[in-house]
Design a protein around this nucleic acid. Structure first.
Lengths: 206, 206, 206, 206
DNA sequence: TATGAATGAGGCTTCATTCAT
DNA sequence: AATGAATGAAGCCTCATTCAT
């Protein structure tokens, strides 16, 4: 018997969770970083990954669950830890270039900016994730700073600023990072910021 | 139903707009920076300044109007432009100290951090205000950079990194600013960041 | 002691109720007929008569009180009853012209249209006032119909339609009245509706 | 954000839009004509069609959208245009009866009265819909007037009032329409208004 | 009388979540 | 796994009314 007085929904493409979940997280990342967690709508996330609102709930229990899964995925990216080593005995400029390029890869990745935009307004909601991120980036940049410090010690220059305050090595690129985070891709403080950073390190290492 | 002697009619203090509006903006700033624009509730803003929800609407047409008025007020603070001049003929270290202290006053003020936290998630809603802020801070730090550049030119050192990329002067403090913005007052990359910044400038100016 | 931290309102023109009340009722009539009772705002009524919102409450206890006072005033207009008498022994055409002009004065007055627009949506709120209005207009048009009937009887034509259904005398002008009420002043079914009405009566009286 | 684990919504019938939308419009028509657009509450409309307040928004974007859809539906009723033709060679009285019955069907339908009551207070909000209605009724009555005019021309009576001002044909029934609109079903100016109208037309056509 | 800031109930609308299909 | 109509809590905003001035 045909029941045309009750509702019969359309059926669309059916994907396995392994395919769908990353799509959802991608969509969520964009919506969250664009409008903030609260203002982002499940509808928009769904639409962005070609799903209906209810479809999200086949994979996640709540908006909050998406948010947490998103942080998990982003913070557990293993490739963040992969870093080519510097050839031993490299010169000062080579050291500076290696340093800046490593930092660039680590801190100016689009993901980092997006995550930063996401974490800043929500840092009180998820302080533990902020801590995770702190450790991650810290551990990451720590490697760079250690290479610098070893190099300085090897050349007997324990009294430089960089030796005493190794975080200064990061400052120019963090400066650019904040710029991007606030003002978008449109402009850096200096389009030649890579060269500026390298030059600065050279002067401080010399 | 109220029928005991603990009943106190709601106090209805009437203030002129000139008094009330700043109170509302203060309350809004706190709520907005605590929870973000979207998640902040008119009820909370009202309560924070001792007003009822509807009372806000005697002074502002909408939540959005409050937000914009708030940005206007913060961005039009004249005291941002006030900066003591550096005594002529000061030495390198004095120059560095003056520079760092000026930048600290300008960029590490609580207002700046609060505004930054507010603008990042809302930058797409109020792009013009973001531009205003960009110009403001740019014009502001420009003064510091000019003092540095003049000093370098005066001593014939046109070829330093700072001469070519004066924005590097700001980087350490911007680094700390981002740190505060994300991680709160809890920790800087280095508690002696002022000394680090000064030392760095001394090395680069020497 | 000067209290400049509390609010001190401006003082404006102070009128006696005898002046102010009619102004308020005029303003209310316009707002009510323009937007309906519910949608009309006290603010708009106040502004339309150069008063502040609270000022209305010095004269009326509530919006409803204004509405009722308005109906009272409009329905009690004595001038509605004033009607020049027709010279005895006038011809058919003179009778028709007198009739149409009387009806025009009574039914196409701006007040009537405005009141009609007001009563139609609110007729369930104030059924007694609708009845009053019914009696008023009925009593009013009754006079016209009586003149017609007497004339028909005098000429021995008791069997005409108009003699049996004297309300038909009003129909053309009521037709125009409804037109105005719905479509505004912009257009009648016929710009020569007066002539049409007179001609119709002449034919029916002949 | 709702994070209550004991949340259990009431279960209700799910209907396809094709079923639900007419129900909503029916409910809206009743509420709007009972209380006027502004005073009608979404809650009441929802309840009247067995829906929750928010459920309406799955089908309509706003209260205004419901109002406009309602006008669309009512104004697009095709059966308004359907009219039986008059047998050729009918006598004067037959012509008058046909005319009055057609007009009665067209203008005294409950829908028309309801729509009229609705449009009068909202005519400034939806002037275009008022125009539509004007055209509809005009086109409709135009047919009646044309039949009358042809008949008059056929009998060589081009100089009658009805020939010059055909809208007078409608006047008695418009009179009754306004009466109903204002005073409800309770009473016409004359319970034999159909006979009166027919008689009047006979006299004017004779 | 008059002002207009303030109140608070009430309405419109949004949106995370549910669930029959 | 997916749809989308439906729910209901919660937020924004309106506006009649009050009241300190």
């Amino acid at each position: 018997m045909i029941q045309n007085d009750t509702y019969r929904p359309k059926r669309r493409l059916r994907l396995a969770p392994a395919q769908r979940v990353p799509q959802i997280l991608d969509a969520a990342l964009q919506e969250f970083s664009r409008r903030g967690f609260t203002a982002a709508r499940m509808d928009d996330i769904a639409q962005r990954c070609g799903l209906s609102k209810g479809g999200l709930y086949a994979h996640f229990d709540s908006k909050d669950a998406i948010f947490k899964a998103l942080l998990d995925r982003t913070l557990n990216r293993t490739d963040w830890a992969q870093m080519p080593q510097l050839a031993a005995g490299a010169g000062t400029r080579a050291l500076a270039e290696w340093t800046v390029d490593r930092l660039h890869a680590a801190l100016l990745a689009p993901d980092v900016i997006t995550l930063l935009r996401l974490l800043i307004p929500e840092r009180e909601r998820v302080p533990m994730r902020v801590d995770e991120w702190k450790k991650l980036t810290h551990g990451h940049t720590q490697q760079v700073m250690q290479v610098i410090q070893k190099n300085l010690e090897a050349s007997g220059r324990k009294d430089t600023v960089l030796a005493r305050h190794p975080w200064l090595v990061l400052s120019p690129i963090v400066h650019v990072l904040l710029w991007h985070t606030v003002f978008g891709e449109g402009g850096e403080p200096d389009p030649h910021y890579r060269q500026a950073h390298i030059d600065m390190l050279c002067e401080l290492l010399a």
